[in-house]
């Protein structure tokens, strides 16, 4: 009973923290949509099984500099909301700094928090080279080579970088392409 109260209290604190952060950095509504949708888009990656090194896929929330807490909060929220499973796919979400990311080979999907353009470009290039889908919080990052992003306009829109898609030889469930908006 005590654990349950602590858990609720923690969730309230996280939410307050996210609200706090959103006032300074990310849009809470958008971030919430990303938390819900990113793991599901990862589940649509048809090559994911072949890239897996263990039973669980790894969704990496990449951060730069002092934004570790935000990344960890996002990772925790994804883990909590999806409970490590989307459709038939088991996965785990981890927060990981840029430097560590490029060294690892077990990452299945990458989600970029706000970071510098050079870092974005670096991760995007790394993703293309290793055929690891990269989704970013900022839609503008697609111009730096990131594979995709989710925007909330009149309706929720998934953007996919067509060039990156071709370069990185990414494979997604065909239905995904029926609702995404491809950008050159």
């Amino acid at each position: 009973m005590g654990t349950y109260r602590i858990e609720i209290l923690m969730r309230i604190l996280v939410l307050l923290f996210i609200i706090f952060l959103s006032l300074h950095a990310e849009d809470t509504l958008l971030l919430n949509a990303h938390i819900k949708m990113v793991p599901k888009i990862m589940a649509l990656d048809t090559r994911l099984v072949s890239k897996e090194s263990s039973n669980k896929s790894i969704l990496a929330i990449v951060y730069e500099g002092n934004r570790k807490n935000i990344a960890r909060t996002i990772a925790d929220e994804i883990n909590q909301q999806h409970n490590g499973k989307v459709a038939n796919m088991n996965f785990t979400t981890i927060a990981i700094p840029l430097e560590e990311l490029v060294l690892r080979r077990d990452i299945s999907f990458v989600y970029l928090t706000q970071m510098s353009t050079s870092s974005v470009r670096k991760i995007a290039q790394w993703g293309i080279e290793n055929t690891i889908p990269t989704f970013s919080y900022n839609t503008s990052d697609l111009e730096e080579g990131v594979l995709g992003s989710i925007a909330i306009e009149r309706s929720t829109i998934i953007y996919i970088n067509k060039t990156t898609l071709k370069k990185g030889n990414f494979r997604f469930n065909d239905t995904l392409f029926q609702i995404v908006r491809l950008l050159e």
Partner: peptide, 11 residues
């Protein structure tokens, strides 16, 4: 398909 995907994605 798009309907299924939208529902799946929670759109």
């Amino acid at each position: 398909p798009s309907l299924s995907l939208s529902m799946f994605l929670g759109i």
